[in-house]
Design a protein around this nucleic acid. Structure first.
Lengths: 137, 137
DNA sequence: AATTGAGCGAGAACGATTATCATTATCTTG
DNA sequence: CAAGATAATGATAATCGTTCTCGCTCAATT
């Protein structure tokens, strides 16, 4: 049987995502599409893409890592209530970089900016009672 | 026997740290000091402090979560080679916030900025060969 | 056809975190 | 001060995301 091109598969799936996605969720999504792919392969390929600089990794305060393609480098507003991630239109880093002073020489290779808070849908809602999901930061 | 004030103990230990510290490392440090404290208690108290907004949580790209006191809110330059974290003198967020435009109304409650790269000590060194530690993002 | 090597999937192993539970200290109330 | 209620604790088990291991398969090469 011909071997499916898993790397392309994962790249295409990442391209479709509107939000960064976890490795587990990516795996589940591929399986639901009927693909026969192993979890190990997903991690393997993500690791490759990572080393090639094709991926942005967003380490969440809860420990999970979310991935998105680096071809368009984005930052997100993350709602701590509904977990929605809203993409910022542009990365402000290049502007900001000029104004920053480092305490010692340092070569910045990449950066991560995450903004947490309440989206407009969740701002009016009453406070969560049960405390089910992982809370804030 | 009188119950030790673990909460204060953890707060004081966090205060002494020059860099954000993981829960496991915090636990080990307390035990080495001769304290009889359980790992579960460390996590419990960290979780409390977190909900009270006393802690900054730095989710690393490798999944581990590092903690630091929020009383002085800092950002760090993280060297991807030696893992050293260098504190920035000030948080530039309040200045930057003015220049950002959100695609929809959003109430920012807290933020995280991490800069990854090479510190001045590691810039001149030859490239790592073995690839032992977890690499870059 | 035989050989070699890279990629694969299933499951074990691992590390960080969270949940469970019996025990114990502290607090309340009488 | 006694007695029951409450909250905190530590050891351990369970969970979850990630990485490792290993036998297998496919494809290129000889």
């Amino acid at each position: 049987m011909a071997r499916p091109d898993h790397r392309r598969l994962i790249l295409e799936t990442l391209q479709k995502q509107e939000q960064p996605i976890s490795a587990q969720a990516l795996f589940a999504q591929l399986r639901q599409q009927g693909q026969t792919i192993g979890l190990a392969t997903v991690y393997r390929i993500l690791s490759h893409l990572r080393r090639e600089g094709l991926l942005c990794c967003h380490g969440q305060p809860e420990g999970e890592i979310l991935y998105s393609l680096a071809e368009h480098h984005y930052h997100y507003l993350t709602c701590i209530r509904c977990r929605r991630m809203i993409r910022l239109p542009a990365c402000p880093w290049q502007e900001w970089e000029k104004t920053l002073k480092f305490p010692e020489p340092f070569q910045v290779l990449y950066h991560e900016l995450q903004l947490f808070g309440l989206c407009h849908l969740c701002q009016g809602l009453p406070k969560e009672v049960g405390g089910s999901k992982t809370p804030l930061q």
